[in-house]
């Protein structure tokens, strides 16, 4: 693997920061600060075009929601398509589409550098994470209420579809977290013109 080479000044700064990070006599906060500074210095020295924190959140949200849809569809329709060739074909097609998106996503992200989080984005992501969890709880409760009580349908969780259902929830949470972060981060302001 090709080793990244920076100029002398950047290398010296990185060496000093790495030393600080490994120095166990310092407090955890000081060492964490050194790690954040390493990310910032590496980011500044990286010649690749940058992707902002907000743009990262947009692509992450889209990818996670797509994954949630695919896994959710497979989990819900598993019984209907069980042991049918059409069902197996459909599942393979959906997984393939999802894998293609993931590969495309990985290739694209390798060409860009990601802007590191700062204190405001970390705080907004913490808020978004909590709100996403609560939102997901409410959505699952409402969907369950409508599905079981109003529509009087059934849904059986068994050894085949539980993984799809679990993955659907995890990806839905991640997608929601990124979407709510975008809302919180952009709330009450427009792009400032200088």
């Amino acid at each position: 693997m090709k080793k990244t080479v920076y100029d002398e000044k950047t290398n010296a700064k990185l060496e000093a920061l790495k030393k600080q990070y490994k120095d166990k006599s310092l407090s955890r906060e000081e060492r964490a600060e050194a790690l954040k500074e390493i990310a910032r210095v590496t980011y500044a020295a990286d010649p690749r075009p940058a992707v902002s924190v907000r743009k990262q959140a947009v692509t992450n949200a889209l990818l996670f929601f797509l994954d949630a849809l695919v896994f959710g569809f497979i989990a819900v329709t598993d019984r209907a398509f069980r042991d049918s060739s059409a069902g197996n074909t459909l599942s393979i097609v959906l997984f393939s589409v999802m894998l293609i998106f993931i590969v495309f996503f990985v290739i694209r992200t390798g060409r860009y550098k990601n802007e590191p989080d700062d204190e405001l984005s970390r705080e907004n992501k913490r808020k978004a994470s909590l709100n996403a969890f609560l939102t997901l709880l409410i959505v699952v409760a409402v969907v369950g209420l409508v599905w079981f009580e109003i529509l009087e349908k059934t849904f059986t969780l068994d050894s085949r579809n539980w993984l799809g259902f679990f993955c659907c929830l995890v990806f839905a949470y991640s997608g929601l977290s990124n979407a709510i972060f975008l809302y919180i981060d952009g709330k009450g302001e427009t792009e400032e013109e200088e």
């Binding site: 500044a44 924190v53 204190e119 405001l120 984005s121 302001e189």
Partner: peptide, 25 residues
Amino acid sequence: ADLVGVRRETIIRLEKGLYNPSLKL
């Protein structure tokens, strides 16, 4: 933003009084 190690969005929020910075910042 580059000098203090934050995003431009953070500076915008600070100028508008929409964010309490940390002591370090």
